[in-house]
């Protein structure tokens, strides 16, 4: 009689402990996942900000750069494409395109001292430079968080339940594709 009660109590205690551990693990994982999602949202915010800055930049530069219509049009085109892009794959390609168009543009700007002295242009340039940095740092933070999240759901003992509770591995965010990484390598050997 008393043996059965003790067994019952032991089982109950084990169930309660298991439930507590499960709840704790679940909460921890949810917190991590939220952080990953916030980090992702931050990348989005910065990409949108870049899209918003570009029309102003093109407008300011147009007056000074009569002979660079093509460069300016390319930026506008890349920006519109990036804005319309759907899905992370398409988006990252379009953003990459936009980055290189901007890089091209800032190289050309070196030939226009009047433009480089324009206060409005300088302010826009600072904002764009910083937005590029912010995209980079947001990506870095996202990758750090994702890495931590992935390590956590794959390590014992959380890995026993992570799949059941709906936590799955997430991919890191790489802006450059393999092909683009190899393009600028020029060799004169």
């Amino acid at each position: 009689m008393s043996g059965a009660i003790i067994a019952l109590v032991v089982v109950a205690v084990i169930i309660v402990l298991l439930g507590l551990w499960l709840a704790g693990t679940y909460n921890g994982l949810v917190r991590l996942r939220n952080q990953v999602e916030n980090a992702w949202a931050q990348i989005d915010v910065q990409l949108k900000r870049r899209h918003d800055l570009i029309p102003n930049l093109v407008e300011t530069a147009r007056g000074y750069m009569k002979h660079e219509r093509q460069t300016l049009e390319e930026i506008t085109k890349a920006r519109n494409l990036a804005q319309k892009a759907s899905g992370p794959g398409e988006a990252s390609e379009a953003e990459q395109q936009l980055s290189s168009a901007l890089g091209q543009f800032f190289l050309v700007v070196e030939n226009y001292p009047d433009l480089k002295a324009n206060q409005n242009f300088l302010a826009l340039q600072e904002e764009l430079t910083s937005t590029e940095n912010k995209i980079g740092f947001a990506r870095q933070f996202y990758n750090d968080q994702t890495m931590q999240y992935n390590i956590r759901i794959q390590s014992f003992p959380a890995n026993l339940v992570a799949g059941m509770l709906g936590f799955h591995r997430r991919d890191l965010f790489e802006l450059e594709s393999e092909a683009e990484r190899q393009v600028p390598r020029v060799s004169f050997e």
């Binding site: 952080q35 931050q42 910083s130 940095n133 740092f137 933070f141």
Partner: peptide, 8 residues
């Protein structure tokens, strides 16, 4: 702002 983003 950049560093706050990097540090979350």
């Amino acid at each position: 702002e950049e560093m706050s983003i990097a540090a979350g």
